[in-house]
Amino acid sequence: MAAQTEPGKTPLYYVPAQSVWPIYTAIALLIIAIGGANFIQQSTDKVANEGTLGGATFAVGLFALLVCMWGWFRETVVESLGGKNSTQLSISYRMGMGWFIFSEVMFFAAFFGALFYTRLLTIPWLGGAGNNAMTHELLWPQFQAFWPLTLTPDGRTFEVMSPWGLPAINTLLLVTSGVFLTIAHHAIKVGDNAKVLKNLAIAIILGFIFMGVQAYEYHHAYVEMGLTLNSGIYGSLFFLLTGFHGLHVTIGAIMLTVMWVRTAKGHFTPENHFAFEAAAWYWHFVDVVWIFLFFVVYWL
């Protein structure tokens, strides 16, 4: 593998100069972690932890994180507009985003895994299936195994969320939003900015409506159905899965909003619009997670 250097070729690759943002972002996360842990401990009253400014620290950390993201992205935007991004770099960005989304897929996989494990193994076992006859007989004689689990082994009871009300509407909202986003994506490839703005706006608005509906659904669950985080494994899984999905919708919607602003500012060209594409991928990923979630959490 002897190397040969061809003289006279220009550097293909732009190595960015030093940057303050990575370390600032790390510090912001430090503040968030310290503040967050203290905040959780104080506000849930499980651990005696008075006298620390958990909530305030957490808020400062979040704010710092936003500032850092703004600064960091600004730096990349400036580079991009300055024409410093070679084709190779934009491939790197795309691959990077792709693998990042894969990591998110695995994050959700852990929660979905928990759901399947519970439904296929834990609940039947608590009901005496397999080699757990004695579990049922000795420990939970009253327990009946079924899904959705509306009566926990220790006797908590509540209602389950039906798929055919708000959740179905939400599915429709997100899918439609994805369609408009795709139209916008095609438009950006031909440089039709007005069309991008219009369709992207619809996609974003649908996203925000989704969040509103979701919030209403949570309210309904807590107030009228007695379905809370405390409602045994069903409530745990329901809120964890939909909650983390909701968090991702929020992030995705913010990303799309930023893209709308950047489109309006004329940052994107048919050749150079990595950020838009990344946000779009993210949105589609969130979409797919929802559809999956709709099937396994609400419906089946």
Binding site: T122, I233, Y234, S236
Partner: peptide
């Protein structure tokens, strides 16, 4: 939540 707590079905 009761992910890891049998009393809630975990």
């Amino acid at each position: 939540t009761s992910f890891f707590d049998a009393a809630g079905g975990g």
